[in-house]
Amino acid sequence: MKKPLFALITLTGCGIALAQSSVTLFGVVDASVSGYSNRSNDERAVLLHQGSVKLSRTALSNSGYNPSRLGFRGTEDLGGGLAASFWFEAPMTNDDGATGVSSFTRRSTVSLSGGFGEIRLGRDYTPTFWSNAVFDPFGANGVGTNLIHSANNFNVTGGTGGVAGNPNVLRASNSIGYFLPPNLSGFYGQLQYAFHEQTKYDPGTSTPVNALGVAAPTRAGRYVGGRFGYADGALDVAVAYGNSTSGDQFYLGTTDSVKTMNLGASYDFGPVKLFGELSHSKSSRNFAVTPMAATSGIDLGGYLLGVTVPIGAGLVRASYSRVHYDRNLPFTLLDDPKASKLSLGYVYNLSKRTALYATIARVSNRNGAALTVGGAAFISNAVFTPRLSRGYDLGIRHAF
């Protein structure tokens, strides 16, 4: 619901009213009963076989259909086609009330827009995340979230050969973004650069070291990415690329990075809407002086196929996603980890703002992959290997 700026000033007790300005309060409250079941198997020889072990959980959760959130956004018309805007959006855990407007980690930006496009500063979504969400029938939410998005943190296979995970899978802090103007005959795009804001030391040997002998990071956190696409009527297609510096160690002369590229598309035929995405990511470690036993990193390839079918006030959603890890080991008899996921859901819209939804999903892991639909992490050790993960969401979403 929209509130004029003077109303916000009345509530807060301070501020200056500006002509041709507006502030909007908005949000989503999403709650669901969710169940998770993750099973690991003993895949050794029959004489050693100890069966399987299953971890299960039932919970009242949030964000099964849309992320629960509370936000404030405002715009001031500066004249001459220019506008200044802000956007503060906080995550909410409405199932327990523990998280609210204590931080605006979903988005916190200020921007200037006009005929040239928009320049946006602050914490925002990364370009490479957008395709994972836009071209997923489940919007990368709940147990139905596609495996491409789930796997892109590179922390799901029991280790990545010493390479750090990806801190900028969804969002990047301390970023400067540029968005093309919306009147380019269907073409759209964005560029983003995020500062690492780490302290550099000169000479480098003065870099402080903690009690474990690890030097303070000097480059971790940096992100560079872009996304360009075309949307006209039923068709939407986009390509994105991002490079995230995930870690560094001065004394070892190493820099860890995750490079991601994806291509996604959707086409709305009316009776059905089809979705698809191809993705490739590489988590690697660069050495100033390459040692004898340098790791070659991990390549992650994946694809997604999805569909939505409107039926009256309802919407059927389905997707199949698959990922494959290439550990780039030159001499090994072990097969590389891989996983596949099938998701099926139904949404019934009670109104434009309120919906009931149900989702079920199943993940099948092979060769050490450990992707889940949610809940507790798999038991993974010398005896048990992650295998199947199943889950469901039954919930209600209200937007305001």
Rank of each mutant, 00 (worst) to 15 (best):
K259T: 11
G159N: 07
S131A: 13
S85P: 03
G51C: 06
L82T: 04
N168F: 10
E118S: 13
P208L: 12
G122N: 12
A98V: 12
A358H: 00
S283K: 04
A369S: 14
N38T: 07
V307Y: 06
L304C: 06
F275L: 09
W130P: 00
D30S: 06
G221I: 10
N146R: 08
F116A: 05
S244P: 10
D336C: 03
A399H: 01
V383L: 12
V224K: 09
R120W: 04
P386C: 06
I311A: 12
T12K: 01
L25A: 10
L8P: 02
A377P: 08
I298R: 05
A216Q: 10
H280D: 03
T128C: 10
F400G: 03
R317T: 02
S34G: 05
I298G: 00
K282A: 12
S284P: 00
V156F: 06
K3A: 14
A164E: 07
T245R: 12
G270F: 08
F104A: 13
H49V: 02
G158W: 08
G233E: 02
V323G: 06
S364Y: 04
G142N: 02
Q20D: 15
A172N: 13
A382S: 15
V239D: 00
R366K: 15
L11G: 14
A59C: 08
S102F: 01
